[in-house]
């Protein structure tokens, strides 16, 4: 099953997929170019049946000056979780929103925006969701936002 997914994606997007592998049973990881993530997402949903969005996470790789955005989508009949990921530069964190693909990503993307400052183009409502209304300063989940240490450390 997982291999079929890998082959299908590879066959349809030979140039845009940077890395694709099966991590274990039921887990497929697809790394794509930044500007094609929308098309791959659409392909995953319509052709392969990954219709249930599970999470959208940002990861801050501060050493490489990059953010990674990971969309986890679950396929209800195939029973596979696909991780669709892409890297974007840290100084220009803009990505096309996938809300049109997975409507459920609405709040996930909004949260990623406020926690990392990643701007999702085409998202209907990017405003603070969880943070206090008067939040100022850098988004908290970036690595350069540092929490206090234990006093004895």
């Amino acid at each position: 099953m997982e291999d079929r997914v890998v082959e299908d994606v590879k066959a349809s997007f030979p140039d845009d997929v940077l890395e694709i592998d099966v991590q274990r049973r039921g887990r497929v990881s697809i790394s794509v170019k930044r500007d094609r993530i929308y098309d791959v997402g659409l392909f995953l949903r319509d052709k392969l049946g990954f219709d249930h969005i599970a999470s959208v996470s940002g990861v801050d790789y501060i050493d490489k000056k990059e953010f990674e955005v990971v969309y986890h989508a679950w396929s209800i009949d195939k029973k596979i979780l696909a991780a669709l990921r892409t890297r974007i530069p840290r100084d220009n964190p803009v990505l096309k929103s996938l809300v049109d693909v997975w409507e459920g990503a609405l709040y996930h993307e909004r949260e990623t925006w406020e926690m990392f400052g990643i701007k999702f183009e085409g998202h209907p409502n990017l405003s603070l969701l969880l943070l206090p209304e008067d939040w100022e300063g850098i988004p908290p989940l970036r690595k350069d936002f540092i929490l206090p240490k234990r006093p004895q450390e």
Binding site: I53, A54, H108
Partner: peptide
């Protein structure tokens, strides 16, 4: 952990 993302059921039910 370098990053721990937690996708919670109630959050996913928000829409």
């Amino acid at each position: 952990p370098y990053r721990l993302k937690i996708s919670t059921p109630s959050f996913r039910n928000l829409p």
